[in-house]
Simulated assay, not measured.
Amino acid sequence: MSRAVSWVLTIALLLCLVIPGFIAFRVWHVARIDDRTPADAIVVLGAAQYNGVPTPVFQARLEHAALLYDEGVAPQIITVGGGQPGDLYTEAGSGRAYLTRLGVPPEAVLAVETGTNTEGSLDAVAQTVRDQGGHSVVLVSDPTHSYRSRMMARDAGLDAWTSPTRHGPAVWTRENQIMSIIRETGAVLWYQYHRIVGSDVDFPG
């Protein structure tokens, strides 16, 4: 094997190690950020619901969003997420109903019932916020989901920052958090690859 080929292989190997490592660090770092800068809207990223009842993961996000609303971070909460085939309820609609039960005024909650993944939902949110004359959002999701969702929101043209929930199944154990960082590292790599090649194929979630 020639020296040039060896150098190429060595550099390729280093890139395969360094790039995922850097992204994993960014996922971990942004997960620790709780930015409550006033914005035009608080956006709750959807999660599973069953017959209109949010799962514990989704409930944790919604409860955190209600707290931010009570603190005056934004005058509006936007819930997002469509439904799966055969569903009677959407993630956004279930989230809106749960927030009103928590005491958030119904007129302060807007359900954007579009999108089956983070990117599609945030594209719909960006259009909705712009239609209202706004441009800034605080994103509420699980900590390790914050980096990718912020990236997607900014790519959609929003001024976005994150305030992740600190309770619920997603943060119960160290093992959950580590596995989430690994999964999100793969999801970010997938998203960036398809941005480069111009593909519409999305990583689930």
Rank of each mutant, 00 (worst) to 15 (best):
E91Q: 15
Q127Y: 06
V137W: 01
D123W: 11
I178Q: 10
R61V: 10
G72T: 04
E184D: 06
S180A: 14
T185G: 13
V129M: 04
T118Q: 05
V104A: 02
M151C: 09
T116D: 13
R174Q: 13
Q192W: 15
R101D: 11
A108L: 06
W161C: 10
A111G: 06
V140M: 04
H64Q: 08
D123H: 11
M179W: 14
W161H: 15
L68P: 07
S146Q: 14
T79M: 15
L189V: 11
D142A: 13
Q59D: 11
L99Q: 00
W161L: 10
G82W: 03
T116F: 08
S180C: 07
A170K: 05
V171T: 07
A187P: 01
R166C: 08
T90K: 09
A111F: 01
R101Y: 03
L102M: 10
P75I: 02
P85T: 01
T100M: 13
R150I: 09
A126M: 03
D155S: 12
I78E: 02
I182S: 05
T100P: 07
L110D: 05
T114S: 12
V73H: 00
P56T: 07
A111D: 06
Y69W: 15
H135K: 13
M179R: 13
V129F: 01
T79A: 12
H64K: 06
V80Q: 12
V109P: 01
A65P: 06
V129D: 05
